[in-house]
Amino acid sequence: MASQGTKRSYEQMETDGERQNATEIRASVGKMIDGIGRFYIQMCTELKLSDYEGRLIQNSLTIERMVLSAFDERRNKYLEEHPSAGKDPKKTGGPIYKRVDRKWMRELVLYDKEEIRRIWRQANNGDDATAGLTHMMIWHSNLNDTTYQRTRALVRTGMDPRMCSLMQGSTLPRRSGAAGAAVKGVGTMVMELIRMIKRGINDRNFWRGENGRKTRSAYERMCNILKGKFQTAAQRAMMDQVRESRNPGNAEIEDLIFLARSALILRGSVAHKSCLPACVYGPAVASGYDFEKEGYSLVGIDPFKLLQNSQVYSLIRPNENPAHKSQLVWMACNSAAFEDLRVLSFIRGTKVSPRGKLSTRGVQIASNENMDAMESSTLELRSRYWAIRTRSGGNTNQQRASAGQISVQPAFSVQRNLPFDKPTIMAAFTGNTEGRTSDMRAEIIRMMEGAKPEEMSFQGRGVFELSDERAANPIVPSFDMSNEGSYFFGDNAEEYDN
């Protein structure tokens, strides 16, 4: 993207840094990872977990959730003011799984939030270390993106479920800051804005008074975040219109849905970061690795190297396929839920299948599930090659597409044709070009129609051997075009429920 120079890199967003050079960025990201790792080690000690239990991804998720809940100030305040039966607002906890007599047992633990905050700050040299908290939120978000298709949420806001490739980060909490905003897809931002506008339509006082002023500035800020994701002048001009509207209503909703559809071809720039579970960072720190000293990046080879040398386990339900569970977590670790499966298959070195073909449910185990038949197995999170994460949407291309997802959002900077089903997408653009945004709409449609099938995206960008740390010898991959490109292809993934 041309304006790259004016933006802070995501590592800076990730670490609240002012302008830093590459070495400083690597050190501050490393410091953040160190903090998460030290916190995780301490929690495993508190909970008396064995090494194996500490490497269980379900335990990692519970521990991450506990610290996120302990620092969720708004919710904590709300819980104190609106006490609900049987919930102690000062405590947080969740299921911890232990191996007892050759069987997995679930144990519900409860801790004072104050105590968890103390352990977290102690692991982070006394700081609140917001960057580390956001990092864990993005890992949870990436896992949700890989596990669930947001059909219901899309339909509720009037969008087409086939636009799911635009929904990265749709389950990120509001408090995820600049680093969170960077990884949100165009569809996620559109959905947040539509929800806001709908509230304004239904509630006369939404934009009024002292609160209304705050609401208005939040609305304009979200519009600017979305505008910054678009790469064409016409899309940005249309966002200006939406932002400046005196009284946002149905016309703005129409414009936003139009823009979301246009992003299936004229893709937005959305950041991709490899955020790993805390149970990967903990053992690495415990083994003596100093992330701050060595430096770390979320968008280069580092996460690949770390996963190459990590042992992570997962509980497996009786009829689940461990290899499929591994694929789910591998995609989440690489922030690749909406990437082209052919690119992923090449990088991973084994075939990556669409969601609907995987015999696996989510990673988390519900409290009512029976533990008797639970097994555990090693997650295979290694890769054959590594590639640089991208934040450009890439230019655009036609490809055989599917009944489910009709476009992709690249996660890796790797040369390819970008699949999208042009006739299906263009069919949504018939007729409606009147109104105050008509010239911009016409211009956007013209650009979409001009998108050429034979153009290559990320020209000359390749993948790298894991021994090639400096990215000196790019390998331009070859793809098996007979395979499906979309992950949520004609899909039956479970729906995400809060």
Rank of each mutant, 00 (worst) to 15 (best):
K31I: 04
P423A: 05
P248K: 10
N144I: 03
Y296E: 12
L226Q: 03
I194Y: 14
L315Q: 08
A401R: 15
I425V: 13
G404L: 05
D34L: 05
K422R: 14
A428V: 05
E115W: 11
T424W: 01
M222T: 14
A237H: 00
E484G: 09
C333D: 08
N247M: 04
M43T: 03
E24I: 03
G435S: 04
G450F: 15
V242R: 06
I365G: 06
D439F: 09
T437K: 03
I301C: 05
L266T: 05
A181M: 13
S141T: 12
A428H: 13
Q12F: 02
P477R: 15
H324T: 13
T147D: 10
G431P: 06
N473K: 02
D240F: 12
T151F: 10
S467V: 13
I63Q: 01
R55N: 04
A472R: 08
E320F: 10
C333G: 05
G35Y: 10
N247A: 01
R75L: 05
Q4Y: 00
T6G: 11
E107A: 12
E469N: 04
I444W: 07
A22W: 15
K98W: 09
M196T: 04
K351R: 14
R162Q: 08
L381N: 10
Y78S: 08
S69Y: 07
R199C: 13
T171N: 04
S176G: 08
G460K: 00
S269M: 10
Y78H: 14
K48H: 06
P419V: 00
R317Q: 11
R348F: 12
A451P: 02
A387R: 11
R470H: 11
I444Y: 07
A332N: 08
L379V: 02
T437L: 07
P161A: 15
M136I: 02
L61Q: 07
E115C: 11
P419H: 03
E369Q: 04
K98I: 01
K90Y: 14
M371R: 07
A387H: 11
T360P: 15
K48F: 05
D439E: 01
E495Y: 15
E465K: 12
Q12C: 00
P322N: 14
M426C: 00
N370H: 15
R204N: 12
S3G: 09
E115K: 08
S60Y: 09
L315H: 03
L358G: 05
M456Y: 01
I388Y: 07
K103M: 03
P423S: 04
L108M: 15
R19Q: 10
P303C: 07
N76H: 09
Y496A: 01
E210F: 08
S353Y: 05
S287G: 14
L418F: 12
D112F: 12
V109L: 14
S376D: 15
L68P: 03
N142D: 13
E465F: 10
D145P: 08
M374V: 14
R75D: 11
I257N: 05
N202C: 09
E254C: 12
K325A: 06
G177I: 08
S467T: 04
E107F: 07
R162Y: 03
M137P: 03
R19I: 10
T430A: 12
Q311G: 00
M331C: 14
E254K: 09
S413T: 13
K305I: 15
C164W: 02
S314D: 12
R65A: 03
Q231L: 12
R208S: 12
L68S: 02
K7S: 13
I57F: 15
L341N: 13
D145R: 08
M371A: 02
L68T: 00
C44G: 04
S314N: 08
E339L: 03
I257R: 06
L61A: 15
E210M: 12
T188K: 01
S413N: 04
K357P: 11
A260H: 13
L381F: 05
N124R: 04
K214T: 15
R317G: 15
M239T: 02
V363W: 09
